[in-house]
């Protein structure tokens, strides 16, 4: 008997006005697994994370987390159940200090009352030495790391990561890849959206390729790059071979 998935998404639909952005998306994430979510710009990756984390209600389909239907629950409830995410464009609480940004998530976001070692958490994302600064003083990459610390402070079991690697230098990329793998090794399930294929290759166990709100491939990345449909989507359909 196969173990129960941490997250199962089935037939997910979301549209804005007349624009259908998610057109029946299906996938699952196992505990301890890193699933990559790739696809061209505008294919619906961020929207998919937004629906899973309660920013939008799904218009059809189901989201099952640890055996429980969670579609349409408000964000804070999902956070308490152990779902969290980072934002493609993080919006930290700018006048609050870096420490307070994480503190408030640790205070409000955890189902348990476990004390969070905020200094250790900040150090683990490279923000030691910045704790007392207002978040507004951080550069955009540091704000992304703060956003990751904010998410981790809530003790998630499922973490959705939206283009965290964009803009990092190679050393930082390795650090983040290592960090995500460590989290997965601890049992966390991760859904990782990323454009950098090298990074996806380095961290994911499996990928889903999304195009125009539908998944067109599911499997390991090495096979995806040989898939005719995937190649068409990424290189344009007018090439001939």
């Amino acid at each position: 008997m196969s173990p129960e998935p941490l997250l199962a998404v089935s037939g997910l639909v979301k549209s804005f006005g007349g624009l259908v952005v998610l057109d029946g998306v299906n996938f699952h994430v196992m505990p301890g697994e890193i699933l990559g979510l790739v696809g061209p710009n505008g294919s619906g990756k961020t929207t998919c994370i937004n629906v899973i984390t309660g920013l939008y209600k799904p218009q059809a389909g189901s989201i099952t987390y640890r055996g429980r239907a969670v579609g349409g629950l408000p964000s804070h409830r999902l956070v308490h159940l152990g779902i969290n995410r980072t934002f493609q464009v993080p919006k930290p609480f700018l006048p609050l200090t870096v420490r307070q940004n994480v503190e408030v998530a640790a205070a409000y976001g955890r189902p348990d009352d476990l004390a969070v070692d905020i200094d250790a958490l900040l150090a683990s994302v490279g923000l030691d030495g910045h704790a007392g600064k207002p978040a507004a003083a951080l550069n955009s990459i540091q704000q992304k790391m703060l956003d990751l610390a904010r998410a981790l402070a809530t003790g998630p079991r499922l973490l959705c990561v939206d283009e965290l690697a964009a803009g990092l230098n190679p050393a930082e990329l390795d650090g983040v890849a290592q960090k995500l793998r460590d989290l997965a090794r601890g049992g966390m399930g991760l859904l990782v959206v990323e454009h950098l294929m090298g990074f996806i290759d380095q961290v994911t166990d499996r990928v889903i390729v999304l195009n125009a709100g539908r998944e067109i491939f599911e499997g390991v990345l090495a096979e995806a790059v040989r898939d005719r449909q995937v190649v068409d989507v990424f290189l344009g359909t007018d090439h001939d071979d």
Binding site: L55, H76, K91, L96, V104, Y108, G109, A151
Partner: peptide, 25 residues
Amino acid sequence: SRFGLALQAIREDPVTAGMAGIDVV
């Protein structure tokens, strides 16, 4: 207090505040 911090978080960005586990409404 934590509550005051939560209110300021809501003021700065309600979406991020929700993902910090704060009941924005």
